[in-house]
Design a protein around this nucleic acid. Structure first.
Length: 815
RNA sequence: GCCGGGGUGGCGGAAUUGGUAGACGCAAGGGACUUAAAAUCCCUUGGAGCUAUGCUCCGUGUGGGUUCGAUUCCCACCCUCGGCACCA
């Protein structure tokens, strides 16, 4: 018998699939429904890792299943090709980022091809191609013209090691997400996309996708957007015709305000502060600017010499500059209620400021000196004049209503979400297409001049600002409006921009008249199934949702939400930790493919755990997967000359075989629909075990047996396509298995005509007895009490009642 | 601190709407084949106990509850893994 030789057959079939273009997605096929299967594209770091293998094996199983189910499938792949590692490689190895990136792409494409994934390679996209990024430059200019972007000096997170600005999402525990260095605060001119204008849409449109997305991803995004309802309240400045506005979610505690806190970098602070406190204040602000927001730091502040008037009772309260007040949330001014807010409580204790109780609950002392912490929960108002006695939830809006009439308050909302800073002081990214003219100011590049290409001759040292600033013939240009000598913007886009629309580009990847062919996008969008890592729950997935809405509002797409369904796969773990070079627990997919073949790698990865869960790598498990494929090979090889045909199901053996065929199709189909690949595979393994036992003896049995083998190959095809295709052809087929239809099952044949009924006494299993399907209670009961195993638990006891579940269970309750 | 997952054999994991817990695989043990080994095939395998070829009890993180019956539903708690973290 010929041996299973994965190395040989995998290359063979990959070639045939490619030659016959079986994975080419056909734009506009009216005879089939479309299915857009997408996996998160990789960064071309050099090699595919196990996380990719998992991600793409899941996606491929879905894509191939949908093909068999009769869908016109779009299954593309590309590379998220801009980013920092290319520059680091340039510094370390003295290679150009472009060269490094493209050679990595070449290698990784080979690796992906070796895994046999069903991509339409004609649609390959690399985001560092100017044919790609020119379109986001165009979109940016249109956003600029519509006021959807702005330039602003702001305090930003800056990584001194990467020498670049980071988005909030790119800061983890105060450290750079990429290199782990301590992030510092810096004021810079940056470009922002007004994602906050879309905050409500991003929240509301979740209802369009909530059926297809994991709940926890939506919850994470909801928390990230962080919408809170509250009130803006005006506090008049004593002795001046001016006021400060605060945002609060607790207007019910307004009578408990004993001071006001203001951010040290608030623009009005210097102007307001009284002369005698200015020196101390300036010193404090200086110190604050140096250290920035230090989360671990104790709450500190200084008095400004200013008093404000509390609008609810006219009382004067002091204004303090405080280091814990954020300038970019709310108004940068906070009303302090030390009795009912822990931060204010700590601050008041430190600076001996009064604490006032305005919310009461059972057991809460009236003597605030006894308090060791603020009471921040709900309760009933006290010491609040006409509102005393009112439930605090109700009082919140009653007090606002009352102040609103006097023009001193209004209901409002605040978001935790900040605008998206897209400026990066890096070389390897898409240039921001803007020109600074001494006469005309900030001017976008003309659309017809796009792309603003990245210059190739650049010296990358990794030190100091943007490398583009040193490229004279890039920086120096003419103003598109007045023609005067002007300077180009030297920052490049955050690479999250590229990944916010690549799935649209796949629909018409070579289209050169615009960002994409609208009709094709209309045909293919939305993505029916998106598969990727949970680590992108917020950043990438939120940006992509936002960008799609922007493109919709610019008239490019009809979609409001790009991804109809989302599957977030778990990490690949080894020895209890995520695979990483630093931990030395990396398993290289190339090694596994060399040793066992792609099918084994795919089978193991899909079998070892359900997709959403973390997957523990196991060398023994891989061995087991390989063993199964050999077992499959031997089974089919030894019966490869049998031919299937119509059979009259006339004997018990034929009936049983037929039942197993149909039952297995049903199980596998149902589990595929639910993406439970691990149980899909288990069902196939059980089927194989059954078929090993069967031994077809006559013509009819052989015909039906051959059918069983064909069904088995069709069921396994989405998971282990190479071996399945080879065995299919060994069975004498000259069609391609990949083009075969998914097998259908006959519902009636998935049910046996007998069933095993559990006999329990007081809920405890005592026996299992086989009955014809549909047997009645009395019939089952009569048989059951004959069983000695049941009988012995009934003896000497009264039968109180019987619970009968048809075809399943009889519970006899005794006393 | 807040939000959200998750706790099932030695291990990865199965178990429709509450109805036979542990499918499938791994590991382990035993046997067959072989001069031998590998490969393969077959059997056993949650724990404890006993008057052992069968039977009893216990068992899905812990303690309660609802129910004829709970891995599944309810309450309280413990552990663990993610996310957010001075957001007023």
């Amino acid at each position: 018998m010929e041996k299973y030789n994965p190395a040989e057959i995998e290359i063979k079939w990959q070639k045939i699939w490619e030659e016959r273009k079986v994975f080419k997605a056909k734009d506009f096929n009216n005879s089939k429904p479309k299915f857009y299967q997408l996996e998160m594209f990789p960064y071309p770091s050099g090699r595919i890792h196990m996380g990719h293998v998992r991600n793409y094996s899941i996606g491929d199983a879905i894509a191939r299943y949908k093909m068999a189910k009769g869908y016109n499938v779009l299954h593309p792949m590309g590379f998220d090709a801009f980013g920092l590692p290319a520059e680091n490689a340039a510094i370390n190895n003295n290679t150009h980022p472009a060269k490094w990136t493209y050679s990595n792409i070449d290698y990784m494409v080979k690796e992906l091809k070796r895994l046999g994934f069903s991509y339409d390679w004609d649609r390959l996209v690399a985001t560092c191609d100017s044919d790609y990024y020119k379109w986001e430059q165009k979109v940016f200019i249109e956003m600029f013209e519509k006021g959807m972007v702005y330039r602003s000096k702001s305090t930003v997170n800056y990584c001194p090691s990467c020498k670049t600005v980071l988005a909030n999402e790119q800061v983890e525990d105060g450290k750079c997400w990429r290199c782990g260095s301590e992030v510092i605060q810096k004021d810079m001119d940056e470009w922002f996309l007004k994602i906050t204008d879309y905050a409500d849409q991003l929240l509301d449109d979740m209802k369009l996708i909530e059926d297809g997305w994991p709940e926890r991803v939506l919850i994470q995004q909801r928390n990230w957007i962080g919408k809170s309802k509250g009130a803006f309240v005006k506090f008049k400045v004593k002795g001046k015709d001016d006021y400060l506005e605060v945002f609060t979610t607790r207007p019910d505690t307004l009578f408990g305000v004993t001071f006001i806190s203001i951010a040290p970098n608030h623009p009005k602070l210097a102007e307001l502060a009284s002369e005698e406190y200015k020196d101390k204040l300036e010193a404090f602000v200086k110190e604050f600017n140096k250290s920035g927001r230090d989360f671990s730091k104790e709450k500190e502040g200084v008095f400004t010499g200013v008093y404000l008037i509390n609008p609810v009772n006219g009382k004067e309260v002091p204004l303090y500059a405080a280091n814990f007040v954020l300038m970019d949330y709310g108004t940068g001014v906070v009303m302090a209620v030390p009795g009912h807010d822990q931060r204010d409580f700590e601050f008041a204790k430190k600076y001996n400021l009064p604490i006032k109780k305005v919310i009461h609950t059972d057991g809460l002392s009236d003597n605030v000196d006894e308090w060791i912490e603020a009471y921040a929960e709900s309760g009933v108002l006290v010491n609040s004049e006409q509102f005393s006695g009112m439930d605090n939830e109700k009082a919140k809006w009653e007090i606002v209503k009352w102040l609103e009439v006097k023009g001193l308050a209004r209901i409002g909302y605040q978001y935790r979400l900040r605008d998206w800073n897209v400026s990066r002081q890096r070389y390897w990214g898409a240039p921001i297409p803007v020109i600074y003219c001494p006469n005309c100011g900030i001017v976008p590049e003309k659309i017809e001049n796009l792309p603003v290409k990245l210059p190739e001759d650049v010296e990358i040292t990794g030190e100091g600002g943007s490398p583009l600033a040193k490229v004279e013939n890039f920086v120096n240009t003419k103003c598109p409006i007045c023609g005067a000598d002007a300077k180009r913007e030297t920052d490049t886009f955050d690479t999250f921009i590229e990944s916010s629309w690549y799935f649209l580009r796949y629909c018409s990847p070579k289209y050169d008249k615009d960002i994409f062919d609208k009709d094709k996008v209309k045909y293919w969008m939305n993505v029916d199934q998106y598969v990727g890592g949970i680590e992108h729950a917020v950043m990438h997935l939120l940006y992509a949702r936002y960008f799609t809405k922007v493109l919709r509002d610019l008239g490019y797409v009809d979609s409001t939400e790009p991804f109809q369904r989302l599957l977030t796969q778990g990490m690949v773990i080894k020895d209890g930790a995520k695979m990483s070079k630093s931990k030395g627990n990396v398993v290289d997919p190339d090694d596994i493919i060399n040793q066992y073949g792609a099918d084994t790698a795919r089978l193991f990865i899909l079998f070892a755990a359900p997709p959403e869960k973390d997957l523990e790598w196991s060398d023994d498990g891989v061995e087991g997967a390989y063993r199964f494929l050999n077992r499959l090979w031997r089974l089919i090889y030894s019966y490869k000359d049998l031919r299937s045909g119509d059979v009259d199901i006339s004997t018990d053996r034929l009936r049983d075989l037929n039942y197993h065929i149909n039952y297995t199709i049903k199980r596998v189909t149902d589990d595929f629909e639910a993406y439970h690949f691990n149980t899909t595979i288990a069902a196939c393994m059980e089927f194989v075990n059954y078929l090993y036992d069967f031994n077809p003896k006559n013509k009819d049995e052989q015909k039906l047996y051959a059918k069983a083998l064909e069904v088995l190959l069709k069921l396994l095809n989405p998971i282990v396509p190479h071996i399945a295709e080879e065995l299919w052809s060994l069975m004498g087929h000259n069609t391609l298995l990949v083009e075969e239809k998914w097998p259908e099952y006959d519902e009636k044949s998935t049910i046996k005509d007998t069933t095993v009924i559990a006999i329990t006494v007081n809920g405890k299993l005592r026996d299992t007895i086989e009955f014809p399907r549909g047997s009645g209670e009395s019939e089952v009961f009569e048989k059951a009490i004959e069983s000695p195993r049941v009988k012995r638990h009934l003896d000497g006891k009264d039968i109180v009642k019987k619970i009968f579940v048809k075809d399943k269970l009889l519970n006899i309750v005794v006393k």
